[in-house]
Design a protein around this nucleic acid. Structure first.
Length: 278
DNA sequence: CAAGTTACCTGACGGC
DNA sequence: TGCCGTCAGGTAACTT
């Protein structure tokens, strides 16, 4: 479910509902996500406090309190956030529930429990870019994302460019779907060595990454209005992908059949005609 | 250091 | 119907 566009859509959807709200209580299923959920720390540091801002960094959702305590939420593979009236029956994989002062509850549902919830003190939050997000690359939309940035990091990288794009130390938040889609748009074979890309390749690819992410966000944006009680369909399923998941189907540009290969364990799709290794 | 593999978890799906 | 293998949008720990 959650790649960067989905997290951004969820972020924008939640923002007006969470900002300036008071957190009144926190309930947990008791099951760990990727790491144990800091239930007691949240109880101590969040209850009776006000939410100041809701933002996103890479695929992490950031909920900042007025005292700058920071809740960080990652949705893993199957995580979803929704706002529900408190009386709404709890679902099987609802693992964390933040009660608000207006009768609503923010609920984190995560079937596979690959997600995570962290709590940062104001001090940790202030230095999060060197602490929690230390080593995390720039956002795709950041002005630091230049051909030079990628070429410098790719110098000794013989790994597939798709794997390189999905490395959060290189650039934050490009997941499997959008790595596939961007490379098709740029006509670059996903298995091409990262260090083999020339400046003109990056000049082509970077705007396409941004364009595709922007389109996906816009796609999901249409469902923001009915965010409360949303069942988690964040618009994701309305995107029609050009390669992802389309093995054996004709390329929309040239009609050649889309192929699927494994790259570092991840499903990778490409058009053998539009995407050349050289 | 780079690159590939494994592990973490549950559920859906297809084949038999 | 049911059993079994395979696969899934992420990340990080581990090995080579």
């Amino acid at each position: 479910m959650p790649e960067l566009p989905e997290v951004e859509v969820i972020c924008r959807g939640l923002r007006p509902h969470l900002t300036s709200r008071l957190i009144t209580a926190i309930r947990c299923s008791g099951k760990p996500l990727r790491y144990p959920v800091p239930h007691s720390a949240m109880n101590e540091m969040l209850c009776g406090r006000t939410i100041r801002a809701v933002t996103r960094r890479a695929k992490y959702l950031l909920i900042a309190m007025e005292d700058e305590t920071l809740i960080i939420i990652h949705l893993g593979m199957t995580g979803n956030l929704g706002l529900f009236p408190r009386a709404t029956p709890v679902k099987v994989h609802d693992h964390v529930r933040w009660q608000l002062d207006n009768g609503l509850e923010l609920r984190l549902n995560d079937t596979r429990r690959f997600g995570g919830v962290w709590l940062l003190t104001p001090e940790q939050a202030a230095s999060r870019e060197t602490g929690f997000f230390g080593g995390t690359g720039p956002e795709p939309f950041d002005s630091l994302c230049t051909p030079a940035h990628f070429m410098t990091l790719a110098q000794r990288r013989q790994q597939p460019v798709k794997t390189f794009l999905m490395d959060s130390k290189v650039v934050a938040g490009i997941g499997n779907i959008y790595a596939n889609e961007a490379l098709l748009a740029a006509g670059i074979h996903p298995a091409r060595q990262a260090c083999a890309l020339q400046e003109h390749d990056w000049q082509l690819l970077i705007p396409l990454i941004r364009q595709i992410l922007t389109q996906a966000i816009a796609c999901g944006g249409s469902t923001i209005s009915d965010f409360i009680n949303a069942n988690g369909e964040s618009g994701y399923f309305q995107m029609n992908f050009k390669v992802y998941g389309r093995k054996g189907q004709p390329c929309r540009q040239c009609g050649a059949l889309i192929e699927k290969i494994q790259l570092n364990g991840r499903a990778s799709y490409f058009c053998p005609h539009c995407q050349k290794k050289e």
